[in-house]
Write a protein that binds this DNA or RNA. Structure first.
Lengths: 344, 344
DNA sequence: CTGAAAGCGCTTACAG
DNA sequence: CTGAAAGCGCTTACAG
């Protein structure tokens, strides 16, 4: 391994000077700099970040993205978070790695104490997220993609699930739908913040248009979607519209509906929230959906995190993004005569 | 930050002794050990891995999984690799992170030189993979999930694509199919090793049963699958069976076939190779498939890598796994009268 | 503008 | 069984 000492020797300067050149941390005379650079090139020097990190008390220029839900496949949206974040981090001279650890505070604390990462980006945030306290206690800078119930003082970027849900309901209502069900994921003991906010916005919106609130939970899997599709109109007769926040189950839902003889969108309209083009194309008919801005969330999440790392005294960056509507083949006017709600 | 010095001071011993206790690297008298342990507990000491790594010339007990294809969503199979590998690494006292870097040698070389990881696990291996040379040059231990054209001397674990392909063709042939097409992914300038081996096994197998070899490439996306389904029987009339190695396109293929009025499996049988239950359920009808042993691959990949790290002189571990057949709803006897091939 | 030196937190021959 | 000391590769006040 080529060290700074080797470079210093060859260039006839001290290791301090080499360090100044490498980091641009102090002005160096042009002629000296050139000698150092020449030596680095000739020797193939690359600074050892371990030594650098130790000397500067821990800064590694690595940030970790914590993704807990690795039992399920990553949605295209999650992958887009990751690639967006990764690109942005690299632009800023940081490396971003995905660290697959569970949701419990203990594992997060261990990671934090290792000192191997300068900051942490949290995904799949819950309303009350134990990781937040763990990171606070450990004093590790962090930001969230998503947000807890009370995100005051924490940097985050999140989808505006309330606005997105209102949009979904409004689009159905504009086509005459009033009996609209809401389908979301179900993990026991897991208060996914996005789902909670969307569900509450749904209840408000559907009440405003005079319809009943019907909330359905299914596992995040194609099989669960299929099963739901086969029974949804039996369980909830009269429903003409579905807003679904469960990307893993959406395609299966349409398959199950077809099995049950329900024609989409003639008999039932479906709008899928926080979805990707990939998943829309996976479904038949193609989903009408609200596109999750995955890459943007990743990029801005990194920005929010770097702000915490570099300017801990600034107010944290907080930002909400709405999903954009993308027309597909699962939204149509409510069937004639279905508009009036005959009671529960 | 609590350091070894703090612990040593409190316990009335030297930092060396603390280190011996922490690492179990030398015998320590029980009574001394207890004092040290008590001090560590009281102070909440956790060894700083940066210092440790530097002192022992670089060992961080972190291994990186390199996954280049982050433009597409991760398949459930890829996620299973990752979780399997992650679990196994943790069992062995290592942390595994996913490092999203491109396929080019330069980025790999940079990562290698940072000294931040003890070893590297390569995914999405190409026949001639530039990363292999980069890692060899850098002297970083590595193993592959997948394998290059000439994997001699490199640890790996891979799916036995030749055997799996033969199996797929044989199962179709047993039901009277002889005109069997092979559908795989297409990325320009990218010699995916799995695809190449499967394709060559397909050509041999299909020739042996007296059928024509029809190789079709489509992008790895649901949309490309749809488009192919709509034209496949027009482009390749008389085909009664399809073996597909393209998990992202398989569900779309079935959708496209339905659009074209082709009934699966009555008119056309489909067997999907190296697939997961998740993707099988995404498709309608449910795919008949050969299950990719994702978690096992990940675990054994880590084993192969740790072997390289810990016993560089041992012969590298190399292992092939076959995919297991899972019955679904896309395989049926060839349509009557379709058995004979009337020529190209 | 440049250098000598201390120090980051740990490990590990070497002595005893 | 335990300790004093050198060293891992780098950064950074402090002098000059």
């Amino acid at each position: 391994m080529v060290t700074m000492r080797d470079v210093a020797q060859r260039a006839g300067v001290s290791v301090a000077t080499v360090s100044f050149v490498v980091n641009g941390s102090k002005p160096v005379r042009d002629e000296t700099r050139e000698r150092v650079e020449e030596a680095m090139l000739a020797l193939g020097f690359h600074r050892n970040p371990l030594g650098a990190a130790l000397a500067r008390r821990g800064h590694t220029r690595i940030i970790a993205m914590l993704y807990p839900a690795l039992e399920r496949p990553l949605t295209p949206t999650a992958v887009a978070f990751f690639t967006g974040a990764s690109r942005r981090a690299r632009e800023q001279g940081y490396d971003l790695v995905m660290w697959p650890i569970g949701n419990d505070a203990e594992q997060v604390a261990v990671l934090a104490r290792t000192g191997l990462v300068d900051g942490v980006l949290l995904m799949e945030v819950q309303l009350e997220d134990p990781r937040v306290d763990a990171l606070r206690t450990a004093g590790v800078p962090f930001a969230m993609i998503g947000r807890t119930a009370e995100p005051e003082g924490i940097g985050y970027v999140d989808i505006d699930f309330a606005a997105t849900t209102r949009d979904a309901v409004a689009r159905l209502h504009a086509l005459g739908h009033t009996r609209i069900a809401f389908v979301a994921g179900s993990e026991p003991g897991y208060q996914h913040a996005a789902r909670t906010r969307a569900e509450s916005a749904y209840r408000t919106a559907v009440t405003e248009i005079g319809g009943p609130a019907t909330v359905i939970r299914v596992d995040e899997s194609p099989a669960a979607g299929r099963a739901l599709g086969e029974r949804i109109l039996t369980d909830h007769p009269g429903t003409t519209g579905v807003v679904i926040l469960n990307e893993h189950a959406a395609a299966g839902l349409l398959i199950g509906l077809a099995h049950a003889g329900t024609s989409v969108p003639r008999d039932l309209s479906v709008v899928s929230m926080s979805t990707s083009a990939y998943m829309a194309e996976m479904a038949e008919p193609r989903l009408t959906y609200l596109r999750a801005p995955g890459a943007e969330l990743g990029e801005w999440g990194v920005d929010a995190l770097l702000e915490r790392i570099l300017s801990p005294d600034h107010a944290p960056r907080q930002r909400l993004l709405a999903c954009e509507y993308v027309a597909g083949d699962t939204l149509a006017p409510a069937p004639a005569g279905a508009g009036a709600w005959a009671g529960a």
